[in-house]
């Protein structure tokens, strides 16, 4: 006698063609009312990448090797958030430097500079590991060619955007640019943001900054990010301001 066997249960959706219009998780199919396992595991894999990004750390050997090639001195700094767990619960501590970092900045010989560059791990150190140096390798030659004086590059752990204000202030620079790992999404766990603040001072808020986000090859590619930043840096130093009053008039040129 033939043994009874159950049939496969996953019902695919007959509208797969709609997937060409969006990256949203549509036409997943179903078994009963549930999402088929294949799609559940794809979701969990994307989530795992995002979680790993949140807990990732700066890759010092690789970063140092590539920073040395830039021929600009760099500093290793740390915020007042002692661990990732503290960092996640106390954004205020991630916005300011620990004592040792403040001391090392105060020991720096004073020099008039136009721009200071800060690399901050933020919520995705992997984003900095992957994208910070490729961007700087394109941007620095432009800045140097325009005769802007560049302060030593600060690389900060457990840092939020506003820590750039304290660093820029202590370095006595005119404009600070913070490159930081953005909050990971399921479709973009390693995305980098860039924030510009003119006349940095602790206590400034977001309306004083300009932001370019989603810097990564699949989002805003390095070359475009570099052109936008170079434009904003020039305009910020020329107009002596940043934030809502500094308009990014390049936007339309670069939209895909």
């Amino acid at each position: 006698m033939k043994k009874k066997q159950y049939s496969k249960s996953v019902e695919p959706d007959p509208w797969q063609s709609l997937k060409t219009y969006t990256d949203a998780r549509i036409a997943l199919g179903h078994t009963g009312g549930a999402i088929p396992l294949k799609e559940v595991l794809q979701f969990k894999l994307a989530f795992a990448h995002a979680k790993d990004a949140v807990y990732s750390e700066l890759d010092w050997p690789k970063l140092e090797q590539r920073l040395e090639q830039l021929a600009i001195p760099y500093l290793k700094l740390h915020s007042r958030a002692s661990s990732r767990s503290v960092y996640l619960q106390r954004p205020d501590l991630g916005r300011s430097l620990n004592e040792a970092s403040v001391a090392s900045l105060k020991k720096m010989p004073s020099a008039e500079t136009d721009i200071a560059i800060v690399l901050a791990d933020g919520l995705s150190a992997t984003a900095i590991n992957q994208h910070a140096l490729p961007l700087l390798q394109r941007l620095l030659p432009l800045l140097q060619k325009a005769n802007f004086q560049i302060a030593p590059i600060a690389v900060v752990e457990q840092a939020r955007v506003a820590i750039g204000d304290e660093i820029g202030h202590l370095l006595g620079t005119q404009l600070v640019m913070v490159l930081i790992g953005e909050r990971p999404g399921l479709s973009s766990p390693y995305s980098m943001g860039a924030y510009l603040t003119y006349a940095p001072l602790p206590g400034l808020t977001d309306e004083k900054r300009n932001c370019i986000s989603n810097i990564r090859p699949e989002g805003l590619p390095y070359e475009m990010a570099c052109q936008k930043l170079y434009y904003l840096i020039q305009e910020s130093l020329r107009l002596k301001l940043s934030g809502v009053d500094l308009k990014d008039n390049t936007t339309n040129l670069f939209l895909p």
Partner: peptide, 19 residues
């Protein structure tokens, strides 16, 4: 769709969750 908001970058509940 799939509980994954691709614009706001957060996770919520899916169409299937309501079923």
């Amino acid at each position: 769709p799939g509980a994954d908001d691709i614009m706001l970058n957060y996770q919520s509940t899916s169409f299937h969750d309501a079923l």
